[in-house]
């Protein structure tokens, strides 16, 4: 019989970040796709006005600012969070993390049955999350460049990073698909981990607590 104990992994701030990030991404994807391709036509002249595009854009911008706040919180936690939340715990820059990265890949490919007890993020997931965070910065800068076309600050940055508004628009749209693919894989792998692993990974993002083997450590 294996023995488990319940430990605290995710702080309240990280859980708040996760849900602000997740829900804002869902909102941004839906409203953003509508802005890109307004599939439902607004009312024709003579019917009461709805301003559907103006309102969709408003929701997109509000969700965008929540997204920005979430990204700032995660960057703070990367350096000042608890030991599971810091980048040193999961970025494969130490031999321990690198070994765990290989073990995770093997486990995901069904080559090994051993579920590596990570506590926090496994190095594979953690690295992908870090890449997504960096891509978020690209989304934020392209978004603010498009939102504030007459602000010298954002136009200065936007032109340095992307060139014209059209290029920024392409970047902003292209990475929308990356976020969509990421979300799909993320949800699948979390559910997969919940089935094959023993950490209770899905409930950990609500409770902040995971199960770890107490007989091994």
């Amino acid at each position: 019989m294996m023995a488990y104990k319940r430990i605290k992994v995710w702080s309240v701030l990280l859980r708040l970040f996760h849900w602000a990030f997740a829900l804002s991404i869902v909102t941004l994807c839906i409203t953003g796709y509508y802005i890109h391709n307004p599939f439902a036509l607004g009312p024709w002249e003579g019917t009461p006005t709805t301003f559907i595009m103006a309102k969709t854009r408003l929701i997109h911008f509000i969700a965008g600012f929540i997204f920005i706040a979430a990204v700032i919180v995660r960057f703070y936690l990367l350096f000042f969070g608890n030991r599971f939340e810091r980048f040193t715990d999961f970025v494969p820059i130490t031999p321990r993390n690198f070994k765990r990265l290989l073990a995770t890949i093997k486990h995901y490919l069904y080559l090994s049955d051993e579920h590596v007890p990570h506590g926090g993020h496994n190095p594979l997931a953690g690295t992908v999350y870090l890449v997504m965070l960096l891509l978020s910065i690209l989304m934020i800068f392209s978004g603010l460049f498009l939102l504030f076309p007459e602000s010298s600050f954002w136009v200065g940055w936007g032109k340095t990073l992307f060139g014209t508004q059209q290029s920024a628009r392409l970047v902003h749209y292209f990475f929308f698909w990356v976020f969509l693919v990421f979300s799909l894989i993320h949800v699948y792998l979390v559910v997969w981990n919940d089935i094959f692993g023993c950490e209770a990974i899905v409930s950990s993002i609500f409770s902040g607590r995971k199960f770890v083997r107490s007989d091994k450590h």
């Binding site: 292209f174 929308f176 799909l184 699948y188 094959f196």
Partner: peptide, 27 residues
């Protein structure tokens, strides 16, 4: 087209997930 690239990537991810899940069940 960005649309096409995105849809292909999303489709490939879905196929990958289905294959991975099937392998898990078979195992």
């Amino acid at each position: 087209k960005a649309d096409k690239v995105g849809k292909v990537a999303l489709g490939a991810a879905a196929v990958g997930i289905a294959a991975h899940a099937t392998a898990g069940v078979v195992k």
